[in-house]
Write a protein that binds this DNA or RNA. Structure first.
Length: 339
DNA sequence: AACGCGACCTGCGAGC
DNA sequence: TGCTCGCAGGTCGCGT
């Protein structure tokens, strides 16, 4: 169940296997996994077959593959809008399509999605939802499979738009100033070189809300989910309900740096996993769960307090219809706006 | 603008 | 054994 580090692990895995490959056939096993593709499974498959994958791009938890040589690419409409009136603009030079891309295959893993590179001989996974067959390549798996137990994730085709700030749309091997339409409302993440702390802090201060709610708001800063929000708050010794309009610059920097650190550490460990639900692109699990200090540790000692000779046990609160874990000693709850 | 809630889904473990 | 309940890492859209 992926947050930014898990999705980045998947992106890196996909890059080496998918770049330059052509999608030769598409099998939508469960149409619910492409429900965000409004025009349905046939349109989805028809527009993917024959397309070539140029790159794998990530912003926050959204992942997309810009495509070339799509059957009905140009015209600005892309396959999603279904408005393509022929795309005559570049019809005269098919080669141009190799460097120009207006369409991307979008993926969001939701809570339980996986993108697996598999050989044809590997039996179908229990929750296989979509299968892409790929052009043969030396020693490379022949299929990309989307597997998803809970079906909160999905695949769909989308248009690529110019970014609003002119920077790259996301982390990529060959960054382009283009962003997938459905990810254009998503802020840059703390690992993005174009992330601006000053902008983040200004917008954070302008909000009338609690700190964790802000950290989870993908429009303010992306990539942070429930696990890493709790871990970042613990590292920064801040409470989830701390009003954002009282945060000093140093405190905001502390929690942002903490988020960056914890996600960088998780990335190095190959992503967090509690069970086999999350696996990387080759099917191996991450090991970062062993390093969690707050998330899931209700009733256990606070390691930092213990190291200081204090006794404190972490508590779990219901917040935003989910669990939040805090140390009552080193992350005291703010009192009436003050703290 | 902010927030709370339901919807979207399956499956697991705990408790009875 | 089998039932219900609560819980799970995310996002979207609605009503207030």
């Amino acid at each position: 169940m992926p947050e930014l580090p898990e999705v980045e692990v998947v992106r890196r895995g996909l890059v080496s296997w998918m770049r330059g490959r052509t999608i030769t056939a598409v099998e939508v096993v469960d149409p619910r996994s492409i429900r965000r593709h409004a025009l349905g499974p046939e349109d989805f498959a028809g527009n993917l077959e024959g397309a070539r994958v140029l790159d794998v791009v990530r912003r926050g938890k959204f992942l997309w593959m810009p495509l070339a040589d799509t059957p009905a690419p140009a015209g600005g409409a892309g396959p999603v809008g279904g408005r393509s009136p022929g795309g005559a603009a570049d019809a005269a030079s098919p080669r141009a399509a190799q460097t120009q891309t207006t369409v991307a295959l979008m993926a969001h893993l939701g809570m339980s999605g996986q993108l697996l590179m598999q050989d044809t001989a590997v039996p179908d996974e229990k929750h296989l939802k979509v299968r892409l067959r790929l052009s043969p390549a030396d020693g490379m798996p022949e299929q990309l499979r989307f597997v998803d137990q809970r079906i909160f994730g999905g695949l769909f085709l989308t248009s690529l738009l110019p970014t609003s700030d002119g920077g790259p749309g996301g982390l990529a091997e060959t960054p382009l100033p283009l962003i997938a339409e459905e990810a254009s409302h998503i802020a840059r993440d703390p690992l993005d070189p174009y992330f601006s702390f000053d902008d983040f802090y200004r917008r954070l201060r302008a909000r009338k809300t609690g700190l964790k709610r802000a950290l989870l708001d993908q429009g303010l800063v992306s990539g942070i989910g429930n696990i890493y929000a709790d871990e970042a708050l613990w590292r920064a010794k801040l409470h989830y309900a701390r009003p954002t309009d009282t945060l000093r610059r140093a405190e905001a920097l502390r929690v942002l740096d903490a988020a960056r650190e914890v996600m960088t550490d998780a990335l190095a460990a190959g992503g967090t996993s509690f069970d086999s639900l999350y696996v990387n692109v080759n099917g191996a699990s991450g090991y970062f769960d062993r390093s969690l200090n707050a998330y899931g540790r209700e009733g256990q000692e606070c390691k930092r307090c213990a190291a200081a000779g204090l006794i404190s046990t972490l508590r779990r609160d219901q917040f935003m219809n989910r669990s939040s874990y805090t140390c009552p000693v080193c992350q005291p709850r703010p009192r009436n706006g003050r703290w």
